[in-house]
Computed example of a mutant assay.
Amino acid sequence: MSSASASTAALSGDTGGISRPVLALTCGEPAGIGPEISIRAAWALRTEVRSILLGDAALLAQTAQVLDAGIRIAAISIQAFRNTGLPAFPVDCLTVIDCPVAEPVIPGQLDARNGKSVLQTLDLAVAGALDGHFAAIVTAPLQKSTINDAGVAFTGHTEYLAERTATPQVVMMLAGGDAPHLRVALATTHLALKDVPAAITFDSLSRTLDIIAGDLRRKFGIAQPRILVTGLNPHAGENGYLGREEIDVIEPALRAAQQRGIDARGPYPADTLFQPKYLQDADCVLAMYHDQGLPVLKFASFGHGINITLGLPLIRTSVDHGTALDLAAQGFGVADHGSMMVAIRAAAQMAVASAAAGAA
Rank of each mutant, 00 (worst) to 15 (best):
M1C: 11
M1K: 04
A4G: 09
D14F: 14
P21D: 10
G32C: 02
A44R: 14
R46Q: 14
R50I: 09
S51N: 00
G55A: 07
D56T: 01
A61R: 11
A69K: 13
A69E: 13
G70H: 08
I73F: 02
A74H: 14
I78M: 14
G85T: 02
L94N: 08
C99R: 00
E103K: 15
L110M: 12
R113H: 12
N114H: 01
K116R: 15
D123A: 10
G128I: 09
L130K: 10
D131K: 06
H133A: 09
I137Y: 04
L142T: 04
S145A: 15
L161Y: 11
A162H: 06
M173Y: 08
A185W: 00
H190S: 04
L191S: 04
L193E: 03
I200N: 09
F202C: 05
T208H: 00
G214E: 05
G214H: 09
D215N: 13
R226H: 12
I227H: 07
P234V: 10
P234D: 07
E238P: 06
N239I: 09
Y241A: 12
G243P: 08
E245F: 03
A257D: 08
Q259C: 00
I262K: 09
T272N: 11
L279G: 11
L279E: 10
Q280F: 05
D281W: 04
D283M: 06
A287E: 05
Y289S: 12
H290F: 03
Q292G: 02
K298S: 12
F299T: 15
G303M: 10
T309H: 02
T309E: 05
T309L: 11
L312H: 02
L312P: 12
L327M: 14
Q330D: 04
G331A: 08
F332W: 03
H337K: 02
A348E: 14
A348R: 10
Q349N: 13
